[in-house]
Design a protein around this nucleic acid. Sequence first.
DNA 1: CCGTGCCAGATTGTATACAAAATCTCTATT
DNA 2: AATAGAGATTTTGTATACAATCTGGCACGG
Lengths: 250, 250
Amino acid sequence: MDSPAKTTNAPLRRETLHHSAVAELRAMILEGELPPGRRVPEMELCEQLGVSRTPLREALRVLAAEGLVELRPHRGAVVTPIDPKEIAAIFQVMEALESLAGRLACDNGSAEAFAELDRLHGELVAQFQAGERAAYSTTNRRIHGWIVAMAGNPVLEATYKGFAAQLNRARSLANYDADRWQHSLTEHEAVMDALRRRDAATAAALLADHSRRTADAVLRTLRQGNEAGAVSGEDGRSVSDHPAGIGVRQ
Amino acid sequence: MDSPAKTTNAPLRRETLHHSAVAELRAMILEGELPPGRRVPEMELCEQLGVSRTPLREALRVLAAEGLVELRPHRGAVVTPIDPKEIAAIFQVMEALESLAGRLACDNGSAEAFAELDRLHGELVAQFQAGERAAYSTTNRRIHGWIVAMAGNPVLEATYKGFAAQLNRARSLANYDADRWQHSLTEHEAVMDALRRRDAATAAALLADHSRRTADAVLRTLRQGNEAGAVSGEDGRSVSDHPAGIGVRQ
DNA sequence: CCGTGCCAGATTGTATACAAAATCTCTATT
DNA sequence: AATAGAGATTTTGTATACAATCTGGCACGG
């Protein structure tokens, strides 16, 4: 249950400090432990991760290349703030990627992969009926990731994962409403229908549609939450004054 | 004549050594000075670039994240070999990106941007008629880059540029034939026609088509050159024995 | 003659020390 | 009292030194 098509031959990299530092930092950022906008002093992380500055700095450069942190010369690193405009831009690209993935999955997906997809979809429906939001979100992500994996294009998969990480970070700030939830499931049903029929064109179109609607919902709540000050303080001060930094760019 | 729509606000990074090292190394790789498959000993580059190992290593990590080099722990870095399978995968993604760019360019491109596009296309035609292959290739790349820039999506643009760099590296090994050249120009004419009419759907479809045909041509010559041993030596030894390393994976 | 194991050289991974830049603070002046 | 400036402090950027790992060759045994 790893990769349904073909996986890139791993360069067999035995753990090195800067490599595991990348993994840990990435996890910390994606889990929200290091919130967007948060400054990242090197020394602080050094003792927290128990490594020296050299591997840590190399890790920061990698994360910067991935877009998870921003490096300001002589001024330290910052966890990339959530910029609604950039999230919108990512969603636009994601729409194209998901669409491509749906098309390729129809062509390249193995029977076993489709069976697993069916199983995941069943899980999704059950979780919706049980009202388990968090579990639903997780399964939802796994389904999309699985479709991308089914496409059998390692480049597509890697690109998708990078953007998906960014979007999930944004989504953690924006819980969309119950109405959107219902619509989301309906769209999944339609997508599944097309996929089961191996109807590449329809699946691609529906996935693009689903992606665009999801984008609208996320961006709407993101902007709502921002102007209502739902997450940051009510005061008018700069968001960077917030202890953890809320990191939603205007 | 930089960006027709909106440019990402540069983080205002004043030159640091590791940053300029990234730029220099990237140029060296893309120019072919460091051919695919070539080992990259740190010390060698240190004296060549006149920097210490620390900034150089950070630069290598960044380039690895971009996919231009591969890092094998305790075994040094290698300029990422050209893998026809990976090139094919990239082209598949590029097809979706170019298509998206064409659609967005129709919606978001300014009149001035379209005028510049027209000018570039005129240049392309003139260079074709003059039989200037190299100039044609350069203008061709500029046109595609310009369309992507016209889309006004910084994420799309950055992603595109990264993949385009990889593909250009592959193209430097594969000069496609005169027949394909003629077809390429015809396709460009059709794309331009759709763009001038701001016909987003048609432009998107034609750009995808053009991308796919280009991919076919490049991959064909890439495989031809590979099996014919046109670039590497005629002997049966591993390609890695070649002094510069040819770096075409089987 | 070929395969296995060990040793030497070279190269990478990490830590620490020093230099440069930016931020902060305190003071003095308007 | 507010502000500008200079020095001190902190943090980042770079260089170098040391430790760990890999590569290649050679001797030894089968």
